[in-house]
């Protein structure tokens, strides 16, 4: 069984909150927090985060498609919640992701 959306949200928020201490970002990070406008990340930061997610769940995600879609918007940005939804949607239903998620908690 693959990790639930809540599990993924918990993992992602935990990761971002830990990293944001290094960025000296003092705002609250919630599912509505946007990567670029709120946290001030750059595109390479998001690529690295995507790689970390892939490493965590031992699976390749089509993040390039997500970026392409986001890039067509009037305000191109990615809220944390949308990032989590994307991961949840594409997470393989083979138990590997679930195991990784459990191991990380």
């Amino acid at each position: 069984m693959k990790a639930s959306r809540d599990q993924i949200m918990s993992d992602v928020l935990g990761l971002l909150r830990k990293l944001s201490d290094d960025w000296e970002y003092t705002g609250e990070i919630t599912p509505q927090t946007r990567f670029f406008a709120d946290m001030g990340l750059g595109s390479l930061d998001v690529v690295i985060l995507g790689t970390a997610v892939q490493e965590h769940y031992k699976q390749v995600f089509p993040f390039v498609e997500l970026f392409a879609q986001v890039g067509q918007r009037a305000l191109p940005d990615i809220p944390v919640g949308e990032w989590v939804d994307f991961i949840h949607q594409h997470l393989a239903d083979d138990g590997a992701g679930a195991a990784a998620a459990r191991g990380a908690r």
Partner: peptide, 20 residues
């Protein structure tokens, strides 16, 4: 390869990778 990030506007951050 990692150009101008700090000066980029919101849209430019994605533009940097060529998605917009």
């Amino acid at each position: 390869l990692f150009t101008r990030e700090d000066e980029l506007t919101l849209a430019q951050r994605l533009r940097d990778l060529g998605y917009i």
